[in-house]
């Protein structure tokens, strides 16, 4: 287990390094930053001077080393638009995004798993068909459109919930439902298929023959063994959730990282875009890292390298 953790942590470091190379490449793709920084009447001399001062006349590899060194010190440059360090801007916005993502993840896990278990108990029943239909629609609906429709119904037609901005629990309801919709559909599908597999296994049959109450069979014997694929998929869902957060935050004017990125892209605020891609991907990598560990805790056979 410890060795596995070290191996995974090593992988995490390698990935984060690759990620910095990608982001560094993006900064170079975005064209000559000097053109944006210099006044329009600048001479060639001004240009050379600024290039030297910013280290842009150095070879690309050396520039990358400087970039990585600054990054390790938590410095990714200042926002062109706001003039403050991009990292500070992001860290200010991060709690809002994490709050939204956690709420959505909670809804998706609880609703998705309940729906999946109910559907798996009676496959091909009416309930199962209804849930399957809902899941299909859930996976085809554009996130931001669902948000707009929820606003239309719960804020325009019947004004019961607030929209826009971050505040108490009431402000969280609509954005969290919007963001969780897609993931709920996926979690319920995976739970259903995983539970159906497990419910046909010998130990579940044995438990039933022993006379264990059905509720205990389903929740204790079956669900626990069906957990690994559900947890794995849930962690992959987190990436989709972070993608969805970008649009959800824009629709609901939620002051998180997602809406900041969109503003930054529209304003060509490159340091903020780079910092956001780095930060969100790092968050996602870290979540995956802990999911792997969690899976190994749930099913020790995985850690031993045997397929369950």
């Amino acid at each position: 287990m410890v060795r596995l953790m070290i191996a995974r942590a090593g992988q995490l470091v390698i990935y984060l390094t690759c990620l910095t190379v990608v982001v560094f490449g993006l900064t170079r793709l975005s064209g000559d930053p000097l053109v944006l920084l210099l006044p329009p009447n600048a001479t060639q001399q001004d240009y050379d001077q600024l290039a030297r001062r910013m280290g842009l006349d150095r070879p690309l590899v050396e520039q990358y080393v400087v970039f990585a060194r600054d990054l390790l010190h938590g410095d990714i440059g200042r926002s062109y638009k706001w003039g403050v360090p991009a990292s500070r801007l992001l860290l200010e916005r991060l709690p809002a995004t994490l709050e939204l993502a956690a709420a959505a993840m909670g809804i998706a896990t609880v609703l998705g798993m309940s729906a999946g278990v109910i559907a798996a108990i009676r496959p091909d029943s009416m309930v199962d068909a209804v849930f399957a239909g809902l899941a299909l629609v859930g996976q085809s609906i554009p996130v931001f459109w669902l948000g707009l429709m929820l606003i239309l119904v719960f804020a325009v037609k019947w004004p019961v919930l607030p929209v826009g901005g971050r505040g108490g629990l009431a402000h969280l309801v609509l954005p969290a439902i919007t963001l969780s919709w897609y993931s709920t559909a996926v979690v319920s599908r995976v739970t259903r298929s995983s539970m159906i597999d497990v419910l046909h296994s010998d130990y579940v049959k044995l438990a039933r023959i022993k006379g264990v109450p059905e509720r205990v069979v389903v929740l204790r014997h079956a669900l626990r063994n069906a957990l690994v694929p559900i947890v794995t998929v849930s962690s992959l869902e987190f990436a989709i959730l972070l993608s969805g957060a970008v649009v959800t935050e824009t629709v609901f004017a939620w002051p998180g990282v997602g809406s900041l990125v969109v503003e930054a892209v529209l304003a060509k605020d490159y340091p903020v875009i780079e910092a956001a891609v780095l930060l969100v991907s790092a968050v996602f990598f870290t979540v995956n890292f802990f999911t792997d560990l969690l899976c190994n805790l749930i099913d020790p056979r995985l850690a031993a390298g045997r397929t369950p």
Partner: peptide, 23 residues
């Protein structure tokens, strides 16, 4: 495969916004 895994592990919308932001 390493490049593919790297791409798959960056949230789609972030990658898209990063590239469009740059180009």
């Amino acid at each position: 495969m390493r490049v593919a895994e790297l791409i798959l592990s960056i949230p789609v919308m972030l990658l898209a916004l990063g590239v469009i932001g740059a180009l």
